[in-house]
Simulated assay, not measured.
Amino acid sequence: MKRIYGLLLIGVLLILLSPNLLSDTIKLTNGSVIYGHISREDIDKVIIVDQNGIENSIPRDLILSIDKGLEAKKEVQKVIITLKSGIEVKGSLILDDANSVTIKDETGIEKKIAKSNILDIVIDLDNPNEKPITIQSYEEPETDIETEIVASPAEKTNKFNLGLKIGYQQLNCDILSDRYGKGLVFGGEVILWLHNKYGIGFNVERYSNKSEYDYDDIVRKYEIYITPVTLTAYYKKQSFNYKIIPYFGLGIGQYFLNEEMTDTYWDYYEQWYEASDSETGFHCLCGFQYKILFVEIKYSTMFKSSWGIEGEYDDIGGLNIGGGLRF
């Protein structure tokens, strides 16, 4: 029985790992190598879907060899492409076919450049003595469009995210933690991403909870609201091979406290008290995002204490666990 379980486990691991381990490899006559999955083979061409999800049609006369199911070892080749207009385009070479060259530029955007518009290509930027490798001009007429951006919308380098979040928070202050316990947190955020890697976000949340104590001749009710207004610097590890994207953040903000207490005597006489304060705090966070879904853990702490209904609270920050949607 243990052996059967072991074989099943090995089978599951092979299924999970095989997309990352196995890949088709096409070697071209010009020395370039394309990695991906061959979707169709015709007499005159081979169609391969590369690791960015882009479908490429490769003529047979440009193919040196085809290796199927081999482990792909990427070798990123950096190039400088000089256009006939005098413009230079820098990036990593992705595909070099009969009519065009596709590179990923320094901002992460893929560009497809017609060879009829290319003056020369310099290979190996690390070697200043490298001689330019000139691409032969073809017979196709020149076009006014020198480069075509072929990146998908999901690969935009600068974009906004609008987010909605809900979760629970445990307060740091022992007095508040004993009085209220865990409370509901909800909020919204706006994040500007730069190069699809670094971000700056504006976030507003609201923590709320209630508690009640029944004494001999008095019923005491508490309500608390904490509203953090924060700025966060984000970093996320973006990769085309990852469906789940990890991210991290550090930030600072202002935390607004409002606490109310109501005493009811003999069921007919009430006294009401209220206290408000605000304090500056620091927070750090980490999370994972899958498409528009995300989960996140955030810890916040104050630089100074705050004042509430019954005295001084040393820290109105806490541990926040939640999730939500980002559009």
Rank of each mutant, 00 (worst) to 15 (best):
I133R: 14
K104H: 00
P128N: 04
K104Q: 11
D120T: 02
G108Q: 09
E75T: 12
L95W: 03
V89W: 09
P128E: 11
V122T: 12
E130S: 15
E110H: 13
K111Y: 07
E106K: 01
N117Q: 14
G108K: 07
N129Y: 10
G108M: 06
T134F: 13
E110G: 05
N117K: 12
G69H: 03
A72E: 13
D120K: 05
D97N: 15
P132C: 07
V89H: 11
K112V: 13
E75D: 12
A72D: 10
D105A: 02
T107P: 01
N99A: 11
I94H: 03
Q77S: 07
K90G: 00
D96S: 15
D126S: 15
I113M: 06
G69Q: 04
D126E: 15
T107F: 04
K84L: 15
I113K: 04
L125E: 07
E130I: 14
L83Q: 03
L95P: 00
G91Q: 03
I94Q: 08
A98I: 11
A114N: 11
Q136N: 13
V122Q: 11
I94N: 04
E71D: 02
E106S: 03
N129L: 14
V76H: 09
K84Y: 10
L95A: 04
K112S: 15
K104D: 00
N129T: 13
K74A: 08
I103T: 04
S116F: 07
V101F: 05
E75Y: 10
L70E: 15
D124V: 05
L125T: 09
N129A: 11
I135N: 04
N127D: 15
D96R: 05
I94T: 02
I80A: 10
P132H: 10
G91H: 02
K115L: 14
G86C: 01
A72S: 15
G69W: 06
K73W: 06
D96I: 07
S85M: 08
S85Q: 07
V79A: 03
L70P: 00
T82A: 03
G108H: 07
A98G: 00
V79T: 02
I121P: 00
I133L: 14
D120H: 04
Q77M: 03
N129R: 12
G91T: 02
K90Q: 11
G91P: 00
K112A: 12
E106H: 01
N99T: 05
Q77N: 03
E88I: 02
K115C: 06
I135S: 07
E110V: 01
S92R: 09
I109D: 06
L95F: 07
I123N: 13
T107G: 02
K104S: 01
D96P: 01
K115I: 10
I80T: 08
K84F: 06
I133D: 06
E130K: 13
A114T: 03
A72N: 12
K84V: 10
L70N: 15
T82L: 09
I133N: 10
D120Y: 13
L95H: 12
E75Q: 12
I121V: 15
D96E: 13
D96Q: 12
S85L: 04
I80D: 05
V101M: 11
I109R: 09
T102K: 04
I121E: 02
E88S: 12
T107E: 09
G86D: 01
I123H: 05
N127P: 08
K112I: 11
